[in-house]
Amino acid sequence: MTLRRIAGVDEAGRGPLAGPVAVAAVILDPARPIAGLGDSKALSEARRGMLEPLIRERALAWHVVLVSAAEIDRLNILRATLEGMARAVHALAPSAEHALVDGNRLPPGLPCPAEALVKGDAREPAIMAASILAKVARDRWMRELDALHPGYGFAVHKGYPTPEHLENLRRLGPCSEHRRSFAPVRACLEAGTPG
């Protein structure tokens, strides 16, 4: 029997000090191919922005999950990412018959058989599509957080530990969107930085 509904699963935002980790699952439609897919990290922001609506329009199913900074702090970043992956696959309609997960770990509790693919976001179109949806959704959310928490520069660095972000973190102290379990944020808290 040929598998028909294969979900690609990937995340964006494991490394930042602030904001959620975004996880996406996508089942591409073989009858509606999308040219130009690639690893979201290798594509320009403009290219990702062009591909994202095409993926959402042409895919058989897709779902994006944002796992909050508070949940990341409670679970740890790896467990939070794996939990988000399982939620995204569970939410697909129609459901996946198989999942291809970027990386070397499979989330527990998936509703279908699955395979972990190291560097899958450079090898498998469904994972590429998931990586693009996750990255675009997370970047969009970080721009919204920039308006809610001015001064940190979230719209520019998206929460990653750039020199600008680290300086703003030291100056302003952590906001509610900072991951308190991450060392630079924890150091600010221990130093009694405002926030």
Rank of each mutant, 00 (worst) to 15 (best):
S68H: 01
D121E: 15
A183S: 05
R186W: 08
F154V: 08
L117T: 13
E144G: 11
A70T: 13
A88Y: 06
V21S: 03
P30Q: 12
L66Y: 06
I34E: 05
R171A: 15
D73P: 00
A12L: 08
L82H: 07
A126T: 15
A35V: 07
L166W: 02
S131A: 14
F182A: 11
R14A: 04
P161D: 11
V185S: 00
A25W: 09
I77D: 09
A31W: 00
M85S: 11
I72G: 02
L54V: 14
L3Y: 09
I55P: 05
R170G: 07
G151A: 13
V89L: 11
S181E: 06
A31F: 03
G195L: 02
A122W: 03
G13Q: 08
I132Y: 03
D102N: 15
L82R: 05
E144D: 15
A25V: 11
R170Y: 01
P111D: 14
E11Q: 12
R186T: 09
P33A: 12
A114M: 04
R87N: 04
E97G: 12
H165M: 08
D139N: 07
A31K: 08
V185F: 01
I27W: 00
L110M: 12
A69N: 11
A70H: 07
E164G: 05
V26Y: 08
K135F: 13
L75G: 02
T81H: 03
R123S: 06
L106E: 12
L145H: 04
H149Q: 08
G192D: 03
R171M: 06
G173H: 02
L17Q: 06
E45Q: 15
I127P: 01
E52I: 07
R140N: 09
E45T: 15
H90I: 06
D146F: 08
S68P: 00
L82Y: 09
C175Q: 01
G13D: 01
G120P: 03
R79K: 15
A96D: 10
L43C: 12
D139I: 10
G19H: 07
P30K: 11
P113Q: 13
A96P: 04
H149T: 02
V64C: 03
R138M: 10
K41G: 10
R105T: 14
A22M: 13
A147M: 07
P94E: 01
L17W: 09
R58L: 14
L43Y: 07
N104Y: 06
V26H: 03
V67C: 01
P161L: 07
D39G: 13
A46Y: 05
L17M: 14
A88F: 01
E52S: 13
P113G: 11
P33I: 10
R48L: 08
A46I: 12
F154L: 11
G8V: 15
